[in-house]
Write a protein that binds this DNA or RNA. Structure first.
Lengths: 376, 376
DNA sequence: ATGAAAGCGCTAACAG
DNA sequence: CTGTTAGCGCTTTCAT
């Protein structure tokens, strides 16, 4: 009876639970009874190839079969096993978003969640799945490295990598569908970048803060200072360059503006800069602060308040990002909107197109917008 | 020569790229040449079963073979395909963390990232992979439903589901390894819960705010008001219950304290409550506000400042969570630390233990801590 | 339109 | 210690 040829594949455990006597109710607890495509085929009375075809939307399946299959699927609650499917199709239909941060720093970036949501939505539209991997320590990072090498996903979105990131080499080596946020990496050897024109946008902001056509003469800002973001992370060097350029152009190359370096994109970095400037007297020689991000600006404003300075009356402060920190602050922060909530979708799109074999640009620049509020 | 018996399996495309002449450099571009365990076996000169054994840390592999395999792996950059591995082992080694939020609300929850980091670290320790799925819209949610049914992960951590969540039924139906954050679901039918004693913790806070042993007599708070979180989400009902109880116990059951309902766990909800109370005069009849979360408290404080009220001099405000919002505020917020940064690890642990077949408690309560700062 | 057969890349008994 | 033999559950020619 068991003809050696697998006309219906190996009848191992595949058999509807109790095909006949359903008397002895098992003690339950058992792992969910795996229902396979063979079970469905048997119940529907068609070959499993037909079930597969139907489920994958192939044209040639009769209405009769379709109906029977629908019924069987409904009855069994069948869902095709994702590993088996991926193995057979050599496509996982997964796009992985890798967030690389040194653990606690993650919390300082108010942009992450909106970026994530944006990418998630775009990928979901495609019927694929976005999964987020958090590389926040060495363990996690090396696991992820392994995962990437194992073909876990069809494409990758890289977020917040510093220039020396341990994960970068694997993307440089293997030719994977990917996109990275920010420029300044050794671009050719990695993957397509998406960024904003940090230099242009920051320059616009600084010119706005230093504007002399608008406010009353006694409010014109002439003594600027800068708080930089971490220079080993994308965006920070460019924004700093913009500051140096505009200052040189406005006040001459010999003009020396105070500069502080925040080691992270955090409120704390902003607060520390102010404390330092307060202790060395710099604070009395400046009338506006250009901060490299909203969080840094917010931290600075907090500390200025603590020292009894009024913002913007005594000193103006500008930010960058238009993140939640900008509006949660009093006064609300004048900033640059880099539309981070669209960046995720744009990057997802670039990855998807690569997966589909399309060509994508090496560099995509997204627009920015000056948002004038009360802080500057 | 091709002996029909698959001693070395089907020699389809498996052959090291140019095994001999490496003259004609291909135009590159091609998809990464898939290197399999067969390639490694062939190069190492052993059977692929031996390679598999060695790579999976089985005891019986000779040093000689091991060395040859190491060399072959290094040479080829081989990494076992994750789909094939999962299919054969019937284990994905993936734990999925599902975050369910109505899109933009995600940004209002400052707890997410620290929770995520905590879970991520715990899962990575195990050598498994945590992946985060964001159910922020219908598309994404139904994709995730499908994914869960397809055995995408070995276990699931459920975060921020409201009581009527569309994803809950699938966990109730299939018997999956999972853990959910918060109580108040129809527990028996879903999965193990992890929570804090919201009632106890909030009661402690309220008693602290209303304390009469500590502050000068003219600062004793006797006219409390409450701003509730969204009552369809875990935690909110319990905290509200605590308020009602303590107030009744302190001032009698007929005492009516003003109550506002924030539709989300957001700053905005706190601000709106204050605006409402300002417009109807309630604001003049209260001297302390118990807010259901730090974000709500922060929004309330902002708005109070805008109205020229001093916190805590004119009115005290307390929060809950000890999130970043609590310290980013001036004055810093007196709150309850629920150690969300440990919750992720605890939940991950519960899921892992289920996967390993261990028994886990239906309900795990985590400790809380009253954090006294300046706002109350 | 549908069944049979082969195979995706890997693990895991089972014999030696 | 190692090779052989079966699958894991699904997709995809290839005939029919």
């Amino acid at each position: 009876m068991p003809s050696t040829s697998p006309s219906t594949p190996p009848e191992t455990s595949h058999d509807t639970p109790s095909s006949g006597t359903d008397s002895t109710q098992q003690p339950a607890e058992a792992t969910a009874p795996i229902v396979t495509i063979y079970d469905v085929a048997k119940i529907a009375g068609v070959s499993y190839a037909t079930v597969s075809r139907y489920l994958n939307g192939h044209p040639n399946v009769s209405k009769a079969s379709a109906a029977k299959i629908d019924a069987a699927v409904a009855k069994t609650g069948f869902a095709p096993n994702s590993s088996a499917r991926s193995l057979a199709k050599r496509r996982t239909h997964i796009v992985a978003l890798i967030i690389h941060y040194n653990s606690k720093d993650v919390y300082n970036d108010p942009n992450i969640l909106s970026f994530l949501d944006s990418a998630n939505t775009r990928v979901a539209e495609e019927g694929w799945q976005l999964v987020t991997l958090l590389a926040s320590n060495d363990d996690a990072t090396s696991n992820i490295e392994q995962l990437v090498a194992s073909g876990f996903a069809d494409g990758y979105i890289l977020f917040t990598f510093d220039f020396n990131d341990a994960l970068l080499p694997i993307f440089a080596k293997r030719h994977l569908a990917a996109a990275i946020s920010g420029t300044g990496y050794d671009r050719k050897s990695i993957c397509p970048c998406v960024d904003v024109d940090n230099i242009g946008a920051m320059a616009e902001m600084i010119r706005y803060v230093l504007r002399d056509d608008n406010p009353p003469a006694d409010r014109r800002r002439t003594r600027p200072a800068y708080i930089s973001g971490p220079l080993d992370m994308p965006g920070a060097p460019e924004r700093f360059t913009a500051f140096n350029r505009v200052i040189a152009e406005r006040f001459g190359t010999e003009f020396e503006a105070p500069v502080a370096y925040s080691p992270k994109w955090s409120r704390d970095g902003g607060a520390q800069a102010i404390r330092q400037w307060a202790s060395d007297g710099t604070i009395n020689r400046i009338d506006c602060i250009i901060a490299a991000s909203d969080t840094i600006a917010a931290g600075a404003i907090d500390e200025l308040h603590r020292l009894g300075r009024r913002v913007p009356d005594d000193i103006a402060v500008s930010g960058f990002d238009n993140s939640a920190a900008a509006t949660a602050c009093t006064p609300q922060i004048t900033t640059v909107d880099q539309h981070i909530e669209r960046r995720g979708a744009v990057m997802a799109d670039i990855v998807i197109r690569q997966i589909n074999g399309e060509h994508v640009p090496d560099l995509t620049m997204m627009p920015t917008e000056l948002i004038v509020r009360q802080s500057a």
